[in-house]
């Protein structure tokens, strides 16, 4: 467990770096929030100064930073001026929307990519292999905002099977009582099939958009890892020993190919969570990406800082999970200290 603890402690300087960097980044944004939020035409220079004071921006930068870090240590991410809510409340409100989208997209991508990659690796040079290669290259070539718009055009405008690409739920459906914030789960918990279907329908296009993008690196890595693993000595030994092909592929080859795949999974997932902004824009998805963008443009410092910190924390957490998964798949890495 010692190693795990040290690994956890190693995260602290990274997060501290993120805190400093975001603070600096917000302060060098051009534009003066005191001027921006003093929007009444009757306001004069004195009003702007008073507002600056109220926002705490009259303090020297180092004091602002000390105050910010102090609040942070108390678990206070500050207030959003635009929404009038504490940033933490806003993030908790919106994070499930982004997470639900990302997880569903991720699951879709994994469900397609891994079998595809394995199939391609089993028959290199076959039709499946070429297909895999094409998908892998074409998939990352599709900008998510173009894929999203194309899907909207095809399935909403032309075929009319998809719902209006606006938000997580038909705006006039009743949202289920909030338990987790994940609409699919909350709808199931409330035994409300209608809402579940509505939420799932809204989710399909944006999730597919993201999945197409995420599929490529996963399929490519699965294929490569499987080829390497199938060519290794122990597989050859196993074959020579007359083990069943199925057993060899699933038990030996795939298990050994898992390590690089897990690493890629982690990278892809955290990348998706951060790159949500574009998909959220296209589908009017009320997630944290669009929240951060609005705050950035609206000179609302606290939400930008809170968002960056939250994302960095998630990124670090995912890396940690990947490491743990790694050591389960391969005990030799010894994260749990029984090497």
């Amino acid at each position: 467990m010692n190693v795990l603890l040290r690994r956890l402690l190693g995260v602290v300087p990274t997060l501290a770096g993120v805190v400093v960097a975001t603070f600096v980044l917000t302060r060098i944004l051009p534009g003066d929030p005191a001027v921006f939020f003093t929007s009444s035409p009757s306001a004069d220079a004195a009003t702007i100064e008073a507002v600056r004071q109220k926002l705490g921006l009259d303090q020297p930068l180092w004091r602002q930073f000390v105050i910010y870090v102090g609040a942070l240590l108390r678990g206070d991410l500050g207030q959003s001026i635009t929404t009038g809510q504490p940033v933490l409340t806003d993030l908790l409100q919106r994070l499930p929307a982004s997470a639900e989208l990302t997880i569903v997209a991720f699951a879709l991508a994994v469900a397609v990519a891994i079998p595809l990659g394995v199939a391609a690796a089993l028959r290199p040079g076959s039709l499946v292999d070429h297909l895999c290669r094409l998908i892998a290259t074409a998939g990352v070539s599709l900008p998510t905002f173009v894929t999203g718009l194309l899907l909207i055009y095809l399935f909403y405008y032309l075929a009319g099977v998809a719902p209006e690409p606006m938000g997580r739920l038909d705006p006039f459906a009743t949202a289920p009582p909030r338990l987790t914030g994940f609409l699919l789960i909350d709808a199931l918990a409330a035994r409300n099939g209608e809402v579940f279907v509505s939420a799932a329908r809204q989710l399909i296009l944006p999730a597919a958009t993201m999945a197409i993008f995420a599929l490529a690196p996963l399929a490519r890595m699965t294929r490569a890892a499987m080829i390497a693993s199938l060519g290794s000595d122990f597989v050859r030994t196993a074959r020579a020993n007359g083990l069943k092909w199925r057993t060899i592929v699933v038990t030996y080859a795939l298990r050994n190919a898992l390590l690089p795949i897990i690493t890629t999974l982690g990278m892809v997932f955290s990348y998706m969570l951060g790159a949500n902004v574009l998909v959220e824009r296209v589908f009017a998805w009320p997630g944290i990406g669009s929240y951060a963008l609005d705050a950035l443009i609206g000179l609302d410092y606290a939400p930008v800082q809170g968002f960056m910190l939250a994302m960095a924390a998630i990124f670090v957490a995912i890396n940690l999970i990947v490491d743990i998964a790694y050591s389960i798949a391969d005990p030799r890495t010894g994260l749990f200290g029984h090497a």
Binding site: P13, T14, L15, G17, V18, A21, T22, L25, T26, I28, L29, P30, S270, Y271, L273, G274, A275, V277, L278, G289, A292, L293, L296, I297, V304, F307, M308, M311, A312, F315, V316
Partner: peptide, 24 residues
């Protein structure tokens, strides 16, 4: 190495957004 770790921990696209906003 530390600086690189910090950079990598950012949601990269949003970081790019913030930089463009900051630089004009």
């Amino acid at each position: 190495g530390r600086v690189v770790d910090v950079l990598m921990a950012f949601p990269l696209f949003v970081l790019a957004m913030a930089m463009v906003a900051a630089l004009g």
